[in-house]
């Protein structure tokens, strides 16, 4: 089977899920995105991406952790799966390899 392909935003969301380590759900993931990357995105975008990630098998989810703040409704809590973490590591490895291929000083400001 070929490697799971992840888009850039999907990668960000997957990283947030991993960072939040089991505490990630719609609200916290949106806030983490805003806090760490400065992106303000519509809630629907995050929601859709999470569903897509689950279809790709890189996260799993379960319902739980109802609070009064949410009117007693449960949260859908996301957790990264083994293929998910493998995918993230592979992405990082790939980047690493590509960076190593760069000519030295190529990206120095003066060179462009």
């Amino acid at each position: 089977m070929q490697r799971t392909y992840l888009g850039e935003f999907e990668e960000m969301v997957l990283l947030m899920v991993a960072i939040l380590n089991g505490e990630g759900y719609g609200v916290t993931i949106s806030e983490a995105l805003a806090a760490h990357t400065g992106r303000i995105v519509a809630f629907g975008t995050v929601h859709n991406t999470l569903i897509r990630l689950e279809e790709k098998g890189v996260v799993t989810s379960e319902l739980g952790g109802a609070t009064a703040e949410r009117g007693g409704r449960r949260k859908r809590l996301f957790r990264i799966t083994a293929p998910g973490s493998r995918a993230l590591r592979e992405i990082q490895q790939l980047r690493q390899n590509l960076w190593l291929l760069l000519p030295p000083d190529m990206l120095q400001p003066g060179n462009l």
Binding site: F43, H47, G71, R74
Partner: peptide, 16 residues
């Protein structure tokens, strides 16, 4: 099938 968590999340965000 996703109504519960979405409504909850949006309520939380509204409060915030």
């Amino acid at each position: 099938n996703t109504l519960e968590e979405v409504t909850g999340d949006l309520d939380e965000l509204y409060t915030y």
